[in-house]
Design a protein around this nucleic acid. Structure first.
Lengths: 338, 338
DNA sequence: TCTTATTTTGAAAGCGCTTTCATACAATTA
DNA sequence: TAATTGTATGAAAGCGCTTTCAAAATAAGA
């Protein structure tokens, strides 16, 4: 079966292809009666996207980039949730998603150079990325999901306040009586890591607790296996930490494992705090106190912002901040008596 | 800055656009010396994809469909892992991915009708789906990831043997001494659910244990909250089940919660078995015995199969079966003495 | 050297649309 | 009724490529 083209529709309706195109796009006035004729002839007709894109210079598709190392074999749950939000918002507005999961940015710039997308949503961008300036310089709209500082004067992004959130939970731990508080974070190449670390420092300084450098474990490549080791480092110290702020819930899980291996009770002997409040947090044993963040909403909001840009033709350099919620559960308590 | 077109390259190299196109596509012989001249002129030139697609009738992009209800707000980890495998395999072969996450299939058929993709990878297809026949009838290549039976004589799919896997773990439970074994599965609209249920039945029948119908809990809409309730149904029975086969690890987590609420010890008073062996399984308390399945490899393999189809022009109606591994951990033991 | 076979190249058509520009027609106004 | 304005439509160009077909350049054979 040969596919129906705009010519077939035009013939069937007894009009020219221009008229068909006009009723399809609603671009200019068409007499009501002919409009109806054309619409009737449009059954089983679907415009070929590439033809339309070639001419109209827009693709109605958004490139979604997720920074991810293939060797991790596991995608951060917050990315997935953001992706879900992006997906729903895109669908609402008739946009499609081209997904690029990778560490390097050539895939992304290809999408741009080959005109495959109208805009981008970027997740997990490294501070050292130079993709952003390419996009800026070429007026390609994009929105960042998640933390980023960068050299640019300001980019369009939707984010949480990582620093504030970690500052809060650290203060919570301090309020519980903890002094020797450890933290495990990933590469400071990522703003979310450096911000969370900064939040920890801020809280500790605010409480006049001098930070022992062996309490802060920064890891370029924070897998669960690594996290477990780092947690053990923390626990083998003498005196050991009585609480650990984990970069995220996966890390917290690893900390749980380490604690178990070291024969430390949670929360009796060590308190643990996670981040992201992934689905497991509530089911862990003991249930994990964690910072919930609105990942889905981040994605959704980013998409809406991007679509607005696309409509208006200009990109706001604004940053939207969404709120986190600390989910208090049972993984934290006062430190053991000395 | 105006984008460089094939005309610019041609002028710069002193040849016609036909020649440029030829060296770009390697479609026919070009003299070595002119080839070099053209290649030199190609710096900063990127073909516009839509123009190329319009003419060549192929898009070098694959549509990836994930069946998912928006109200779930959470994407099955096995899908994500498969997606990762798909992504890596696609990248290797220079394919892009158009992602469509949704329950209904109009998004997918749009991609097809508008010629946005060269083929499809489908995940979580319902038995009642009629997308497949549309694709078949129009010679659009596709590969299924995961279980599916369907009316068709056979489709190209890569899958595990759900029935065999659940049969094995049920036998394991029986071997441990269990007789009253419960099972919680999702909608039998999905082959993976009905197959796992069939595996359970097969094992029970094999051991001559008549199945009490209150032991099998089928749920159209298996969320964690639902699973927890169903688990409690199982536990409130008199005599109650001594083991539960959960549809997947999320369900198993909910069973853990229910057991805790009912004051039942795992594995002392109830044994629990999960499926998928997601990352949490090993970290649960007690660590969950679960069936690991090669999700990543499923995606990777599906993509390779699809690319082969695309090259050869014809689609094999074969089904590839990958192996599962039972990860024995500490959530199963002999049933309590009566 | 001249013909024939072979390789290399260019002109031009066309993929299926959108959009400009001009024309035809209907509706106003003088 | 003629002149003027406004509206509805079509012809044609062109988006940036690939590909066919024929011509030109080169190599081989007589």
């Amino acid at each position: 079966m040969q596919k129906k083209t705009i010519y077939d529709v035009a013939r069937e309706a007894g009009v020219s292809i221009s008229t068909v195109s006009r009723v399809l796009n609603g671009s200019s006035k068409v007499k009501e009666s002919t409009k109806r004729r054309v619409e009737a002839a449009c059954v089983d007709y679907r415009p070929v996207a590439s033809a339309r894109e070639l001419q109209s210079k827009q693709t109605k598709t958004i490139g979604v980039l997720i920074n991810h190392r293939p060797e991790y074999f596991f995608l951060n749950e917050t990315y997935i949730n953001a992706l879900l939000g992006i997906s729903v918002a895109a669908k609402e507005s008739g946009y499609r998603l081209l997904l690029d999961i990778s560490e390097d940015e050539t895939g992304a710039s290809n999408l741009f150079y080959e005109k495959k997308v109208d805009g981008f949503i970027l997740m997990g961008v490294k501070e050292s990325s130079n993709l952003l300036s390419v996009l800026w310089d070429n007026d390609m709209p994009f929105v960042l999901v998640g933390s980023f500082h960068g050299d640019e004067e300001g980019v369009c992004q939707v984010d949480i306040n990582d620093r504030k959130a970690v500052c809060s939970v650290t203060n919570y731990l301090i309020g519980l009586g903890h002094r020797r508080i450890g933290i495990i974070v990933g590469s400071t190449e990522y703003a979310s890591c450096s911000d969370r670390l900064a939040g920890y420092r801020q809280a500790m300084e605010g409480a006049n607790i001098p930070i022992q450098e062996e309490w802060v474990q920064v890891c370029e490549n924070l897998t669960e296996v690594m996290a477990e080791q780092l947690a053990k480092h923390l626990f083998y110290q003498n005196p050991r930490v009585t609480a650990v702020v984990a970069f995220n819930d996966s890390t917290a899980m690893a900390v749980y494992k380490a604690a178990k291996d070291c024969g430390l009770e949670i929360p009796g002997q060590v308190s643990v705090i996670g981040f992201d409040d992934t689905k497991v947090a509530a089911y862990m044993s003991p249930p994990l106190t964690s910072v919930w963040q609105p990942s889905y909403e981040k994605g959704e909001r980013a998409m809406h912002l991007l679509i607005d840009c696309l409509k208006q033709g200009s990109m706001p350099r604004k940053r939207e901040e969404l709120n986190c919620i600390i989910m208090y559960r049972e993984s934290c308590a006062a430190p053991p008596e000395e």
